[in-house]
């Protein structure tokens, strides 16, 4: 099946099965590896990208469901305030979950530019095995102040 995706402001046509998760189209067909595979069942959020401006877990989001919505991956962020705060506070450890964490944080701030710590607790459900959580919380608050 051919799908034309609007991804990071460009059109891409891929020929894949309809049930192919968006994650694997992004990684294997389009060669963008910033978005990670963690669990395959939308539990960990390492694969978080934006579809139509909303954060989705792309490992469980079939390419056939994207339609005309625009897709945005970590590669599309350009020195974003969230990334600046991340680097300033040295949030990453192993770093594997961080693309998804950052995409979730960017979506949170786009919906709620002034989140309280409780909002972050409620809305950031991504798993980090290294335990960067406290720095993630603090970097999101710093990014909100910066924006």
């Amino acid at each position: 099946m051919q799908y034309t995706l609007k991804l990071n402001d460009r059109q891409h046509t891929v020929d894949v099965d309809p049930d192919t998760p968006l994650l694997w189209v992004i990684r294997d067909n389009l060669g963008l590896t910033g978005t990670k595979f963690g669990c395959g069942i939308a539990q960990c959020g390492a694969c978080t990208v934006h579809v139509g401006g909303q954060p989705v877990r792309s490992c469980s989001y079939p390419v056939s469901a994207v339609g005309t919505q625009s897709v945005r991956t970590i590669e599309n962020l350009q020195d974003h305030p969230v990334q600046q705060a991340w680097i300033e506070q040295d949030v990453p450890q192993c770093g594997y979950c961080q693309s998804g964490m950052i995409m979730a944080a960017v979506a949170l701030l786009e919906a709620n530019p002034n989140p309280a710590p409780d909002d972050i607790d409620r809305q950031i459900s991504n798993i980090c095995r290294c335990g960067t959580y406290n720095r993630v919380r603090s970097a999101i608050l710093a990014a909100a102040r910066r924006a």
Binding site: T33, G34, F37, T73, I87, V91, P92, G95, I102
Partner: peptide
């Protein structure tokens, strides 16, 4: 400051799963 923070905040740090080679199968 960590030397790997910027790479990891931009998705450009190369993990094993990110390896791409010409003619590579998965």
């Amino acid at each position: 400051k960590r030397l790997d923070s910027a790479m990891k905040a931009t998705g450009t740090a190369g993990f094993g799963i990110d390896v791409q080679l010409d003619g590579m199968l998965v």
